Simulated scan of single mutants.
Amino acid sequence: MTTDGAGGTGDQDHAPTMAGLPPRGIGRFGTIVGRVTPLVVPPALLPWVAGIDVATAAASAAVDVPDHATTLLLRVDSGELVVMGPRTRAAYHLGPPGRSCVRVRMRPGGAGALLGRPPRDLADRVLPLRALPGLDVDRLAADPIAALETALTDRPEPAGRLEEAARLLAGTTVAAAAARLHLSERRLRTLFTEGTGLSPKRFARIDRVRAVLAAGPGRWSDIAATAGYYDQSHMTAEFRRFMGVTPAAFAGGRRPAATRCAA
C-alpha cells in the first residue's frame, strides 16, 4: 500500500479521483474559489484574450493552481489592478469572504502585445499594473472590457504559430511539436520564452497537471494515461512537484496550509 504523504492512503486506483472535488470548478483560470461567473469575451478581444470572469472568495481557502497564462486582475472593492505572470507552483490562500476580482486571462503571446513588453520575466510574479507600460490604468479600472478593446485595437495580433505550438504541446513532445512547426527546438524555446515567459517543456508540464485537475470520474491510471504521463507514478511525482501534495491527497482535501492573502 502506498501513502500520500498527507496522512492517508495514496494514489491507488480505488482512491477518490478529482470527480470528488466540489462543483465550484477549476475552469479555464485554474483557480478554485467560492464562486466564478464567466463573462462573454467580445469578438474584438478574442485574438488576445482566452477568458474573462468574476471570481468571488468564500470562507474556505482558494487554490491558485499552476497556470501557463498571464492574467490581468482587477480587485473590485479597491480598484487595484495587478498582472499575474505564469504560475509554476500552486498557491493556497485565504482572502476576505465576498471579495470579488475581475480576471482577464491572456492567450499565448497576448500579454506581450497588451503590456508592451515580453512576459519572460513575469513568471511567478504579481506586479501592480501601473508599473507596466502601454495601458490607461484608470480607464481599465473603470471598465476593463471597453478599455481592453480600445487598447488592443491597433496592436498586432499574437503570432499564430505560438498558439499552434501551445495546442501541439498538449498532446506531444517538445521535439515533435518543433518538427510539426518546422522549427528547431532551440527556436521553439525562444518563441515560448519570449511569448509566454515559460520554456515549452515547463508549459507542457503545467498543461498536464491542469488536465489531471480537470479530469472527470475515472481510475488514476486512466487519468494519467489520458493526461499524457508515462504512467501513474510519473503523474503522482509531477503533481506533487507542482501542487505540493499527491493527486489523492488533493482530491481528498488534504492540502498544504493556506496563508492569508495580504494584498
Rank of each mutant, 00 (worst) to 15 (best):
T3F: 12
G8Y: 11
T9E: 11
D11P: 06
D11T: 13
Q12F: 12
Q12A: 15
D13V: 14
H14D: 15
P16V: 15
A19L: 13
G20Y: 09
P22W: 07
T31R: 11
T31N: 01
V33Q: 00
L39V: 02
V40K: 07
L45Y: 01
L46Y: 00
A50P: 00
V54A: 02
V54M: 02
A57V: 10
A57G: 09
A58M: 04
A59F: 04
A61G: 12
A62F: 01
D64F: 12
V65G: 02
P66V: 14
P66Q: 11
P66N: 10
H68P: 15
T70C: 11
L72H: 01
G79R: 03
E80P: 00
L81D: 02
V83T: 08
M84D: 10
R87D: 11
R87M: 12
T88H: 02
R89I: 09
A90V: 11
A91N: 08
L94S: 06
L94M: 13
L94D: 10
P97T: 12
P97Y: 10
G98Q: 05
R99W: 06
V102S: 02
V104G: 01
M106I: 07
M106C: 11
R107W: 00
A111G: 04
L115M: 07
L115G: 04
G116Y: 05
G116H: 07
P118Y: 03
P118N: 14
P119D: 12
P119R: 11
P119T: 12
D121F: 12
A123T: 15
R125D: 04
A131M: 13
G134Y: 03
R139V: 02
A141Y: 03
A142D: 13
I145R: 06
A147G: 07
A147K: 03
A147N: 02
L148C: 06
E149D: 08
E149C: 14
E149G: 05
A151L: 08
A151F: 01
T153E: 14
R155N: 05
A159Q: 10
G160M: 02
E163N: 05
E164K: 12
A165L: 06
L168P: 00
G171E: 13
T172V: 03
T173L: 02
T173C: 02
V174R: 11
A178G: 12
A178T: 01
A179L: 12
A179H: 13
A179K: 12
L181V: 08
L183I: 08
L188Y: 04
L191F: 03
T193L: 14
T193D: 09
E194D: 15
G195L: 10
G197I: 10
S199I: 06
F203A: 04
I206F: 03
D207M: 04
V209N: 00
V209F: 01
A211C: 06
A211D: 06
V212I: 15
G216K: 07
P217Y: 10
W220N: 08
W220L: 14
W220T: 10
D222A: 15
A224L: 10
T226H: 05
A227D: 06
G228W: 01
Y229A: 09
Y230C: 05
D231I: 11
D231Q: 04
D231R: 10
F242K: 00
G244N: 10
P247S: 12
P247V: 12
A251R: 05
R254N: 10
R254I: 08
R255I: 15
R260Y: 06
C261N: 11
A262N: 03
A263W: 13
A263P: 00
